[in-house]
C-alpha cells in the first residue's frame, strides 16, 4: 500500500465530505447531483483502502442513495436543493404530502435510500476514534441528503433572527440523526449477515426506486 494512495484516500474522503456538507447545509446553492457527486468523492477515497467486495457495496449504496433522492426530485420537479427545501417548506415534507400515490412513492424512495445508506457506510462497529470520526461524518452526510429530499425543512441559514436559525439547526440535526441512526443500524447488522442478503437488499432497493419513480410520474 503506497503512501500516496493513503494520502489520496484521506484527501478524497475529507474533500468529498466537506463539499457534500457545504451543499447540504445550504452554504452553496446547487443541485442534488452535485451533492451526490461529493459523496462519490468521499466513497472513492474510502474505496482506495477497501477490498473489492466492500468497494462494490459502497458503490451500490451510493447508487441507491442517488436513485432515492431522484424520486424526490421527480416529485417536486426540481434538481435544486433550494427548490426541494422551498417546496417542502411551503407544502410539507415529501413523505407526507399527497396525492396518496406520490406519498407512497416517497416512502418507498426513503426506505430504499436508508437501505442504500446502510450499505454505503462501512459495515460493522468502528474500531477506534479516527474510524468513529469518519463513520459519524459519513452517516450524518448520508442522513442529511435523505433528510433534505424527504423531510426537508426551510433553508437552514435563511432566518433573520438567531432563534429561527437555531430552530432550523435543531430540526436539521434531528433529521440527520434519525437518518444516520437508521442507516447505522443496517450497517451494524450487515456485519452479522451473509453478503448475499446485502446484494438482495440492493436489488430490492433498486426495484423499489423504479416503482417509486413510476408512481411519481403517473400522478405528478
Amino acid at each position: 500500500m503506497s503512501a500516496s494512495l493513503v494520502g489520496a484516500a484521506f484527501a478524497a474522503r475529507a474533500s468529498g465530505l466537506l463539499i457534500a456538507l457545504g451543499y447540504l447545509f445550504g452554504l452553496v446553492p446547487g443541485s442534488v447531483v452535485a451533492a451526490v457527486g461529493a459523496l462519490a468523492l468521499a466513497t472513492l477515497g474510502r474505496s482506495f483502502l477497501q477490498t473489492p467486495v466492500e468497494q462494490g457495496f459502497g458503490a451500490a449504496g451510493l447508487a441507491l442513495i442517488a436513485g432515492a433522492v431522484g424520486v424526490a426530485t421527480l416529485r417536486w420537479g426540481t434538481l435544486e436543493l433550494e427548490g426541494l427545501r422551498g417546496a417542502q417548506a411551503v407544502l410539507g415534507a415529501t413523505m407526507l404530502v399527497g396525492p396518496t400515490l406520490a406519498a407512497v412513492a416517497a416512502w418507498l424512495g426513503a426506505a430504499s435510500g436508508l437501505i442504500g445508506l446502510g450499505l454505503w457506510l462501512e459495515p460493522g462497529r468502528p474500531r477506534d476514534v479516527v474510524h468513529w470520526m469518519w463513520w459519524v461524518l459519513e452517516a450524518v452526510a448520508g442522513g442529511l441528503i435523505l433528510g433534505v429530499a424527504f423531510w426537508g425543512p426551510a433553508v437552514l441559514f435563511g432566518g433573520d433572527d438567531i432563534g429561527t436559525v437555531a430552530l432550523g439547526l435543531g430540526r436539521w440535526f434531528l433529521v440527520a440523526l434519525v437518518g444516520a441512526v437508521l442507516g447505522a443500524a443496517i450497517a451494524f447488522a450487515r456485519e452479522h449477515l451473509p453478503a448475499v442478503i446485502s446484494w438482495v437488499a440492493v436489488a430490492l432497493g433498486a426495484v423499489a426506486i423504479a416503482v417509486a419513480a413510476g408512481l411519481v410520474r403517473s400522478v405528478v
Partner: peptide, 16 residues
C-alpha cells in the same frame, strides 16, 4: 490533510 496523513492511518481504517 492527505499530505500529513499519508504515512499514518488517518484515512480511517487499516488499508486493505
Amino acid at each position: 490533510g492527505g499530505w500529513f496523513a499519508r504515512k499514518r492511518t488517518w484515512a480511517g481504517r487499516t488499508p486493505h
